[in-house]
Design a protein around this nucleic acid. Structure first.
Lengths: 134, 134
DNA sequence: GTTCGTATGTGATGTTATTACATTAGTCAA
DNA sequence: TTGACTAATGTAATAACATCACATACGAAC
């Protein structure tokens, strides 16, 4: 799965909504935006979100219960490491970055403790440069 | 706020419930455990949790909507850095650690990007050593 | 004792996510 | 073409998590 064309109808609608938004959306916000496209129930959104997460095309922001389109569309899994998110609590903007040192350091801990990681969440909430100076 | 004695009645009850548990509990699980102590409504739990979070005596695990007693009771704020959690998806056990390198690396990013962090979440979900070998 | 801040009690409501079950559509093989 | 299988979808109900609004009680300061 590498291109939007291979998505199903519902998956495309949800992915497009997230891409248009340029910021995180809750599942229910997506649902409301897609009512004109025939969406009636939360499950239609959640099912699409699950697949898009599988495909690495979107991310879930655990600390705010919202979803955002991946900002590195040509590197879906960020194959080399974990991703960190900086979430502005004023404007909602999300910056996505990955850091090899952090990745290595986390892996050190998990290796040293016999812990098999499946998913790692790194989320920094605060105020972005724009909102901080304004 | 440094000792359990200074907590209010509800705060003590909630904190004790979390301490007894030796693992994360959801707000509603705590509520159910405290019904015999006069708890009737979620807000009683959430208010106590908010305070305990303020005091640094407990942590909130964003990725599983649960709360856990701080495992470093003599260093409530882990004053020097951010805390990471390794959460076992089999047995629910949570390991808490802090890593200066990760802390520094995150701070580098935020400084470099003019981002003022207020709260940072690092949660590793996976399978702990015990559950992995069993 | 009045005032004020903090804590508490209670019901209703808001928000996020899942379960259960029915239906539709596509694929592949006999 | 039919049948069997799998993936996607539709829908209603419910579960799980969290907050709002308002009333009451308690304790310290004056």
């Amino acid at each position: 799965m590498t291109a939007t064309q291979e998505l199903t109808k519902n998956q495309s609608l949800v992915f497009d909504a997230l891409t248009r938004a340029e910021g995180p959306l809750s599942a229910y916000t997506i649902l409301d935006q897609l009512r004109n496209n025939g969406f009636r129930a939360p499950l239609q959104v959640y099912r699409a979100l699950d697949k898009l997460l599988d495909y690495g095309m979107i991310h879930r922001l655990e600390s705010i219960n919202a979803f955002v389109a991946c900002s590195h569309p040509h590197d879906h899994g960020h194959s080399h490491g974990m991703i960190a998110f900086a979430i502005c609590e004023k404007c909602g903007q999300v910056s996505e970055f990955s850091d090899d040192v952090i990745t290595a350091r986390v892996r050190e801990w998990t290796n040293g403790n016999g812990f098999k990681p499946s998913k790692t969440t790194i989320e920094i909430r605060g105020v972005c440069a724009n909102c901080g100076t304004a």
